[in-house]
Amino acid sequence: MRRRTWLGLAITVIAVAQQGHPLTGTWSGDWGPSATERHQITLVMNWDGKNVTGLINPGPDSMPLTSVFVDVTNWTVRIEAETKDTMHISAEGKLQDLGSYHRFITGTWKQGAVTGDFKITRD
């Protein structure tokens, strides 16, 4: 119990907003076709001055982002990637609560033939 308390405290302390490009950072959340069928996802994105690059689920099964487009007039975001078995991923959502420590993106996630919703929050 004590260990959990300290871990919680540490997470609270390091929750400092990233004030640079709004997409830069690590985002976590889930997607799925229904409320009961959900898939955990982690996205790491970085603005290099020209493009946003990054990965889905960093690790041995990571998938590079093939394209990230953000429309800064309304903060809509379109993310594309491919799974290892060449299944196409396309996510389209809206960046919300831009100034918050934990801004988030919600929208529609398509993976192969499956369509669902997603929400990812910046860690």
């Binding site: 400092v16 907003a17 603005w47 800064v72 903060w75 831009l98 100034g99």
Partner: peptide, 20 residues
């Protein structure tokens, strides 16, 4: 750059409430 202007304007419109 366009993204930076959009962020600056957002901060201005929200009256700088998120100023660290």
């Amino acid at each position: 750059l366009p993204w930076a202007k959009a962020v600056y304007e957002y901060r201005q419109r929200s009256l700088l409430k998120d100023d660290p």
